[in-house]
Design a protein around this nucleic acid. Sequence first.
DNA 1: ATTACTTAGTGTAAAAATTACACACTATAT
DNA 2: ATATAGTGTGTAATTTTTACACTAAGTAAT
Lengths: 229, 229
Amino acid sequence: MEQILPHLDSVFSIDCVLFGFDGKELKILLIERNEEPFKDWWALPGNIVGADESLDQSASRILYELTGLRGIYMEQYYAFGDPGRHPQGRVITLAYYALIRLGGDKELRPISTYAKRANWLPITDLPKLAFDHQKIYDKGLEKIKRRIKHQPIAFELLPEKFTLTQLQHVYELILGKKLDKRNFRKKIVSFGVLKELDEKQKGVSYRAATLYRFDKRRYAKLFGKEISF
Amino acid sequence: MEQILPHLDSVFSIDCVLFGFDGKELKILLIERNEEPFKDWWALPGNIVGADESLDQSASRILYELTGLRGIYMEQYYAFGDPGRHPQGRVITLAYYALIRLGGDKELRPISTYAKRANWLPITDLPKLAFDHQKIYDKGLEKIKRRIKHQPIAFELLPEKFTLTQLQHVYELILGKKLDKRNFRKKIVSFGVLKELDEKQKGVSYRAATLYRFDKRRYAKLFGKEISF
DNA sequence: ATTACTTAGTGTAAAAATTACACACTATAT
DNA sequence: ATATAGTGTGTAATTTTTACACTAAGTAAT
């Protein structure tokens, strides 16, 4: 990424678009840069790929260093490499996205040193981003919009046990449109990858909803068949 | 790519999976390597990204150098960068695919010098490939299988004027299954991106089929709506 | 205990899309 | 004229999608 600038002909980095969901809003993790260029700007977190790492390993390491999280579903989605994208030299960057549930049990570990601070900012109100990071983010959002229609990625944003209303909420946020409650339930249940639990939601001041869990086993068996929203 | 090996810490290259269609079979372009490592093996054509090129420009240049073709629909789809993928050092490569119609008017220009020869080989009978090129190819095929369901890429494999039977043939080859003729026609026509011409097929020894053309303008207007096979 | 409030949870009918399926037509070659 | 090979077309049954509104269940306040 951009915070370290060795004097090489070209640098290969990974930038991460970390989508977080706190139960209400979709957010992304941004850092405020402490160095030129783009000092004081917000930027996507990223880093340089290590010599002996695979790309996925590198992405996992970077995610870990920035958030303390492991075992997160993460996927590379596009390489950005315009010669002018970095003012100080050729930096080709590979973009990954990850989906993370926020709040709840463990708080995210504070971030590495190269930034003034890091913050989860709601995607509805993002600041101007450094470099071509707006473009990287845009493409990432586009990507998960498509992917959520065919892959069970929404569950990554939710706690292990969730209600159908919460799940619907995630779909609505990512797709950017309201869905019909009855039709949503009919369809999502018909995929057969949800396990209805005997438990109910707790701590709400109204009728508690049934909790569900994503059933990875049954999903694995479906392989080949396509989910389609 | 792999034929040139400057003594740098890491090298960034582009490899191309060029799918070609000759009216009968799906083929890909392979080169026979003339140098170690993997001397005499078949490999995907590729090259190193130039210092002042964007990634897409670089891919276009490489395609042009290898085939003499310009203006081909081409898209990056995955970066491969396992530390061990190249025996002589770290080479991160970005894979692009392109779809090309073979035969007909202009023959492909012969290939650069770094290979003994280049050949279009049917995908049903591929040799062992150098490096991790089998993996790159597999992922590329997977990619176009998905993409052909939502994007009008099949037309890139056909001449400008084509029959519905030829179009169906392309879909069947890529999807790897037979389709019903009447249903296929109903659906593909319903998308509204085909222009029926007044011309008929020529040179066949049976009833000549009507020719169609892909209507880019009407497709552009559809943007937002999804084609779905 | 009654009431007010808030979200959970459910069914159906109409419309649209998908599937399965077979034969007559047309051009050419002999 | 006849054989041949691929073109081009319609419909009925099934499945999927859409649109739509009320009762049930639990909590909170009185």
